Amino acid sequence: MKTPSIVAHLRDVLILPFTVTCIIPYLIYDPVQHFISDHLLIRAVGFLFLLSGLSLFLYTVFLFRTIGKGTLAPWSAKQKLVVVGPYRYCRNPMITGVLFILIGETLVFHSTSILVWAATFFVINTIYFMLSEEPGLLARFGDEYQHYKKHVPRWIPRLTPYDTVE
Rank of each mutant, 00 (worst) to 15 (best):
P74H: 03
F47D: 07
P157F: 01
G53K: 07
F64C: 10
S55K: 15
H34F: 13
G53Y: 08
F109M: 10
G53L: 11
A119E: 02
S52T: 12
Y148H: 11
D38K: 15
H110S: 14
L10P: 00
S5N: 04
D30N: 12
P74E: 02
T3W: 02
Y87G: 05
V13N: 12
S76I: 02
D38Y: 14
E133K: 01
A77P: 00
L16R: 01
S76Y: 01
L63E: 14
Q146Y: 08
V83A: 15
I156M: 13
D163L: 15
T96W: 14
R65G: 07
G85S: 11
L159H: 10
L56V: 15
C90R: 10
G142M: 05
V108L: 07
T60V: 13
F122R: 00
P25V: 06
Y145A: 01
P74L: 05
F121P: 00
L81D: 10
A119G: 04
K80N: 15
V13R: 11
E105I: 01
G136K: 12
V83D: 15
D163C: 12
H151D: 09
K149I: 01
T19W: 12
Q146R: 14
H147T: 15
A73E: 03
M1P: 01
I114K: 06
P93Q: 14
F109V: 07
Y148V: 08
I23M: 14
S111Y: 04
L27E: 12
F49S: 08
